[in-house]
Amino acid sequence: MQSTTDNIFILVALGMAGTFLLVVSFILFSIRNQNRLLKQRQQFQQAQITHQKELLKAVIESQEAERKRIGQDLHDDVGTTISGLRLLIEMFKPSSGDDKNYQNFAQSTKTIIDKIVKDVRNISHNLSPTTLRYYGLAAAVNEHCTIINQSGKLEITLNNNAEKVLENLPITTSTAIYRVIEELLNNTIKHSDASKADIDFKVDAGLIMIAYTDNGKGLRADIETAKKGMGMQNIESRLLNINATYKLEPYAGKGFQIKIECPIVYA
C-alpha cells in the first residue's frame, strides 16, 4: 500500500474547523427551531385568548340584549297594564258613593299599585338603563348615584373630569363601565358597612382612569382571593371585554379601593 503524504496538522486543523462550523450550524438551527416552535405556541395561545374574548363578548352582548328586552317588556306591558288597572279602580263607582270600606280599599289598592309601578320601573331601569342609551355614561352613573343617595343607604360623591370622553364612548364600553360601577356600589351597600363612596373619572395618557373608593371594611381576604369572588369575576370579565385593566389597591383599614384603566374608544 502506498504511504500517504498528507500533512496530519492540516487534516486535524480542517477537521476541527469543519466540526466547529457543523456544531455552530447545529446550535443555530436548534435555536431557530425552538424559537419558531415557541412563536407558534404563543400564536396558538393568543388565538385561543382571542376566541375566548369573542365568546365572552357574545355572552355579554346577548345578556345585555336579553336584559333590554325584559326591561322593555316590563316597562311597556306590565307597567301599562298596571297603570290601566289603577285607572279602572279609580273610575269604578260603587252604588253607594260614600262607602267607607270601598274608599279604604281603593286607597290601599292604589298605594300598592303605585309601589308595583315604581318597582317595575326600577327593575326595568336596572335591566336596561335608558339614560345610558340616550344621555351617555356620565348621566346614567349620575342618575344611579342620585337614586342611591336619595335612598339614604350611601352618600356617593361623583367627580367627573372626563365629560367629553364619556359622552362619546360606544355603547358596549359605556354599558360595561356602568355595570362595573353598579356592581361596585352594590358590593359597598351589601357588604362593606360604608357610609361614603367616591367615584372619580379622569383622562390620562389616552386612558379613562376610574378610581372607586369607599370607607367601609375593605377586603377581608387578600387581593388574589378577593379576585376569585363571583362579583369580582363579573367585573373582570366585563373589563376584559373592553380591554380595560384594574388594580385592587391594598387599602386595609381604610375601606375598599379599585383603580380601572380603560382605553378610549370613540363610537
Binding site: V12, G15, M16, T19, F20, L22, V23, F26, I27
Partner: peptide
C-alpha cells in the same frame, strides 16, 4: 460545552 468538545475532538484524538 458542545462547541468545545465537538470541535476539539479531532485534536484530542491526534
Amino acid at each position: 460545552i458542545l462547541l468545545y468538545f465537538a470541535s476539539c475532538l479531532f485534536m484530542f484524538i491526534f
